[in-house]
Simulated scan of single mutants.
Amino acid sequence: MIDLDDIDRALLRHLAEDAGLSASALGRRVGLSQPATWRRVQRLQEAGVLAGARLDLDLAALGFGVTVFLGVKLGTKGRVSLADFERAVSAIPEVQTIEHVLGLYDYRLRVTARDIADFERVLRRRIMTLPGVANVDANVLLSEDRLPGPI
């Protein structure tokens, strides 16, 4: 674990808001020179605090108007390995995230589709045919608010 000071936390806060900021723009926001800012960001990357930059796409603008969260319960786990399921579900482009969870379901998937009919096609032809799938529970996303920022 790395020790973070107030400037490091400020850098993380600004990068969480806009990961594309240049070192000079970031430095102006936290009161550092461009080289000092660059060195700090490099240190945070090398320590694993910054694992990469992320681009958020507007799925609705791209024609994907439906997002569904699926709870997936696998059947007999001895017959199908978790790795086999994860490998197969990772190949489905509509599946945006795969989370192995503890609780009622074994996995939680975030699936995007153009519309409900497209989602039904993905569910019937791709997800329900995955190895080991015993039960699927769906929750359609109505709205989403994201509060950006570090923990």
Results as ranks from 00 to 15, higher is better:
2 I>Y: 08
6 D>R: 13
7 I>Y: 01
8 D>K: 03
8 D>P: 06
8 D>T: 07
9 R>M: 10
9 R>A: 01
10 A>L: 07
12 L>E: 01
14 H>M: 05
15 L>C: 02
17 E>F: 00
19 A>L: 02
19 A>F: 02
20 G>N: 13
22 S>W: 01
22 S>K: 01
23 A>E: 11
24 S>N: 08
25 A>I: 00
27 G>P: 06
27 G>W: 00
28 R>L: 08
28 R>C: 04
29 R>F: 00
29 R>E: 06
30 V>T: 01
30 V>H: 02
30 V>W: 00
32 L>D: 05
33 S>D: 08
33 S>N: 03
33 S>W: 00
34 Q>A: 14
36 A>F: 06
37 T>G: 10
37 T>Q: 08
39 R>G: 05
39 R>F: 13
40 R>E: 06
43 R>G: 12
43 R>Y: 07
45 Q>K: 15
47 A>R: 07
47 A>P: 09
49 V>P: 12
50 L>C: 08
50 L>P: 07
52 G>D: 05
54 R>E: 14
54 R>D: 02
58 D>S: 02
58 D>Q: 05
64 F>M: 11
65 G>V: 00
68 V>P: 08
69 F>H: 13
72 V>R: 08
72 V>W: 09
73 K>Q: 14
73 K>E: 15
77 K>Y: 08
77 K>M: 05
77 K>S: 05
78 G>W: 00
79 R>D: 04
80 V>P: 09
81 S>I: 00
83 A>C: 02
83 A>P: 04
84 D>L: 06
85 F>T: 06
85 F>R: 03
85 F>C: 12
86 E>D: 08
86 E>W: 02
86 E>A: 08
86 E>N: 07
87 R>A: 14
88 A>F: 00
89 V>Q: 02
90 S>V: 01
95 V>N: 00
95 V>P: 07
96 Q>D: 04
97 T>L: 09
97 T>P: 03
99 E>H: 15
101 V>H: 07
107 Y>L: 06
108 R>W: 03
108 R>Y: 02
111 V>R: 03
115 D>T: 00
116 I>Y: 10
118 D>V: 09
120 E>Q: 15
121 R>S: 13
123 L>V: 02
124 R>L: 12
124 R>V: 12
125 R>N: 11
126 R>E: 15
129 T>K: 11
130 L>I: 09
130 L>S: 07
130 L>E: 07
131 P>H: 06
132 G>T: 06
134 A>H: 13
134 A>K: 12
135 N>E: 15
135 N>M: 13
136 V>E: 03
137 D>R: 11
140 V>R: 14
141 L>K: 07
141 L>I: 06
142 L>A: 14
142 L>M: 01
144 E>T: 13
144 E>N: 07
146 R>F: 11
146 R>S: 06
147 L>G: 03
